[in-house]
Design a protein around this nucleic acid. Structure first.
Lengths: 153, 153
DNA sequence: CTGTGTGCAAACATTTTGCAAGCAG
DNA sequence: CTGCTTGCAAAATGTTTGCACACAG
């Protein structure tokens, strides 16, 4: 199977269908609407935000928030989506269809900037090795004040 | 004021009292019990865990979980404690009285290993500069399988 | 047809808030 | 004394589950 990175929507959809089929799950209009919405808006969604947007774009499906949660978890379990934790305020999800990257978050306005740095990946491997961990994943988030918010102050 | 890193308990207590005084807040037995418990157990606590431990060690205070939440937030706002997010499962807290470090978490047993790497701090500064962010904080967590759990498999 | 998926409402888990009584300063 | 703090219960959030009906395969 092709890597998930930089897939076109059709390829992504095919990947999704393959995953569904191989787990004896069904391809439904709601599941597609959720995937499509995630694809069309490369933002970081809370389940609630995504639910509202899907409802707005595909009102005839009458998608429930329960289905959004279930689908997001399904996507995450199958590595088609990734989530970031925000303590009490839940999680934010994004599709995994772009190269690996990390996040820098503005504490004022909440904007999320993505970045990528190969040196960090190397460092992480070294650290894991030192403690005899088998690395499966990582999370790196920088917090700060973005350019726009610095000027407002 | 002395840096918070590597304070003895007496120094930590003094810092706490100073913060309380300067905010017109009161020094209470419950607040001290919570600080003391965090100090005596350099673990990563959920509010619930900490609540149970404080109750066990200082039963006569009859501390409520509400107070634990309120005190943890107070400590965090004043940089005496730090929290890590775990999505749905809430947060874990630790005292900030040791040098900066990051965390590596075992996905099997949940054990948290602390590590420290100056190279990472440098890299982060570079990345922030590139995007014109003013860095205030960061979070780096590595996920994997610890040595013990690898052997169990 | 069969069994998975769905929306709804209810249940859950975690955290926050309103309130009356208690206690620090 | 004054007003911050406390514990309790209730409310608020965010997420998951039970169920009867709908629908994909």
């Amino acid at each position: 199977m092709k890597s998930i990175e930089s897939l076109s929507y059709d390829e992504l959809l095919l990947t999704f269908k393959t995953i569904l089929r191989s787990n004896n799950l069904k391809f439904t209009a709601q599941r597609e609407a959720i995937l499509r919405t995630l694809y069309d808006h490369p933002d970081h969604f809370t389940p609630e935000n995504l639910y509202l947007l899907v409802k707005q774009k595909y009102p005839e499906l009458n998608t429930g928030i329960t289905t959004v949660y279930r689908t997001l978890n399904l996507l995450e379990e199958n590595k088609l989506a990734t989530s970031l934790s925000f303590g009490t305020q839940g999680k934010k999800f994004e599709l995994s269809n772009k190269p690996h990257h990390d996040h820098m978050i503005c504490e004022e306005c909440g904007v999320i900037v993505e970045f990528e740095d190969p040196n960090i990946e190397d460092l992480q491997q070294k650290i894991a090795k030192k403690h005899n961990f088998k690395l499966t994943d990582h999370l790196m988030q920088l917090y700060g004040i973005c350019e726009a918010c610095q000027q407002k102050q």
